[in-house]
Amino acid sequence: MKKVGVVLSGCGVRDGSEIHEAVFTLLAIDQCGAEAVCMAPDAEFPETNHATMEETGAKRNALVESARIARGDIRNIAAVTAADLDAVIFPGGFGAAKNLCDFAVKGAAASVHPEVARLLKEMAAAKKPIGAICIAPVVTAAVFGKELAPTLTIGTDAGTAAEIGKTGARHQDCAVTECVVDRENKLVSTPAYMLATHISEVHEGIGKCVREVIALI
């Protein structure tokens, strides 16, 4: 059975993984007959109250919080290598741009969590496919922009697209229910909640993204 890594960044749209996107990713992987391998960095991050959308001043651990989505079946990303996986997918949520990297603060000058960057580089070197959902393509742009100039999408947001372009990656506008496939770099991306106004749109786009990733294995 094919093993597809799912890199989570916490639990909740404002300070971790977007839960709908994460669950739809896991569902689509299962429907494709593959096995999801959930992982997250063991790192602290600022907590957001999701009722007020304001930071509380407290901190949470990305690995511990991501375990909520994974029902406890989760690994520290530091212990995962490309040899363990056939593909890897990054759901969105602001945690991707705040916890997996600091794109939310630094834009094109973002640095990426070292274990996340390591795994992405290992996957690319092994020619194994990578999926990125919603805002998560900024992580791949920060890692691969200058070296590979991959084509990817976050939908149609001009400001974010411009910052992606500054990394050396190429942005392509995309409808919410579609995905962009960079076959040369085996990178697939879809806008999800960067554009979606209905949860059904997110489900459709992520389903296509996951199927394309698995087809590239």
Rank of each mutant, 00 (worst) to 15 (best):
L120E: 01
L26M: 10
G207Q: 10
A82N: 08
C134E: 08
L85I: 09
F94H: 14
A58D: 15
T151Y: 01
T81Q: 14
L120F: 12
E204C: 11
A58P: 03
D182Q: 00
G5M: 11
K127P: 00
V4Q: 12
E47C: 00
I74D: 05
I154V: 15
V37W: 02
A124N: 07
L85E: 14
G145A: 04
A192I: 11
A162Y: 07
H50M: 00
T156C: 05
F144G: 00
E35P: 00
S66P: 07
D73S: 13
P91F: 00
A125M: 08
G12Y: 01
C101H: 13
P150D: 04
A141N: 03
C101F: 13
A96V: 06
T197G: 10
P191L: 04
K128C: 01
I130D: 05
H113M: 05
I217P: 02
E201R: 03
H20G: 03
V4C: 11
C209G: 01
M123Q: 11
G107P: 09
R68M: 01
K127M: 00
A104S: 15
V138P: 00
D86A: 08
V7E: 05
A215D: 15
A215F: 08
S66A: 09
E44S: 11
E212M: 06
C38P: 05
K3I: 01
T177A: 14
H171R: 07
G12K: 04
G33E: 15
V105L: 13
G57P: 15
S111W: 13
C32P: 10
R211V: 06
A162M: 08
A126S: 08
T56H: 07
S9A: 09
T56F: 02
E47N: 03
A34C: 15
C11H: 00
A110C: 12
A96L: 08
L216A: 08
A87V: 14
A82F: 06
A67T: 05
I135R: 03
A28K: 15
A169F: 06
M194A: 01
T156V: 03
